[in-house]
Design a protein around this nucleic acid. Structure first.
Lengths: 151, 151
DNA sequence: ATAGGATCTCTAGCAACTAGAGGTTCAAGA
DNA sequence: TCTTGAACCTCTAGTTGCTAGAGATCCTAT
């Protein structure tokens, strides 16, 4: 039986975060000691490790909730888990592509900056002028944009 | 003189977001019509476009606030703007590296998944076992970890 | 027995918005 | 000119995934 502090140390998840996970139903309610303190076992530790690893992989808590409910039913097909992971993979690839474009643009900004005054600083200039930017439009087009604005 | 809706259409920033930016002091308080509706000019539009583009590049609002105050003082050295952009570039590179590791791991998960049942689903298994993961430790080590936990 | 670290609950706050309620103003058509 | 309905106003509350603090209680080691 682990205290919440030990569980935290064992999993690398902070104490208030563990309580938060319990509160939102991601972890079951812990047993309590005579003095009302939470007590955990190996199975809780494993579940929490699962959550932590999934979070590190970028899964939102709702997806983790779903994955947990899947792993509780080991006789089901894993197609659902596959779908979640695929969705996540697509999101990761998309984020990488966007970030690489941003990286290019930031590098361009920085190499052009002549270390002069603000009035000829390319950083500010690039940020001011949307026209000659590289970073927009990767795949599904310019997101969250109003009609009439083409970036 | 543009209404807030026209400004929104012109910049691609949603109406409530514009009001929010004004509320937090990122944009100056707008003039008002006789009927208390906000009115904007070209300079507001430019400032908002600057904010939007910076947000797209991932700058947090506080950095944008700083960049805006820099661009208001065109006689100063642009070293400060450089610092902000460099910081952002470093953050972007770091995020790319992490995401690429995640991508690898997700792909590994998915290719190993035999489309069987949950009980032999690699997706769930990989998420359960932290030991054989590739994604941890990129540069500054395992972040946000308690002493005693080595990931 | 006691000191002080760990735990408890509760509330509030962070970024960066988004959504809704309930009320007012503006612009275009009849 | 009137009317209608879209756009605007303010205000509050919600989102995600936590984090920080207050003030009280518990547990463990000396």
């Amino acid at each position: 039986m682990l205290s919440i502090g030990k569980l935290s140390a064992a999993t690398g998840v902070k104490v208030p975060t563990i309580r938060y996970y319990e509160e939102i139903g991601l972890l079951p309610e812990a047993e309590r000691s005579a003095g009302n303190q939470r007590l955990y076992r190996k199975e809780h530790q494993e579940r929490l490790a699962f959550v932590r690893h999934s979070r590190e992989l970028g899964f939102p808590l709702d997806d983790i909730r779903e994955l947990l409910s899947l792993s509780d039913r080991p006789d089901m097909s894993c197609a659902a888990a596959d779908v979640i992971a695929s969705r996540q993979l697509a999101a990761v690839k998309d984020r990488i592509a966007r970030l690489q474009a941003l990286q290019q643009e930031l590098e361009r900004m920085l190499t052009q900056c002549a270390q002069g005054t603000i009035s000829d600083c390319k950083v500010i200039e690039v940020l001011s002028n949307h026209e000659n930017c590289l970073h927009a439009d990767h795949g599904e087009g310019c997101h969250s944009v109003h009609p009439g604005h083409d970036c």
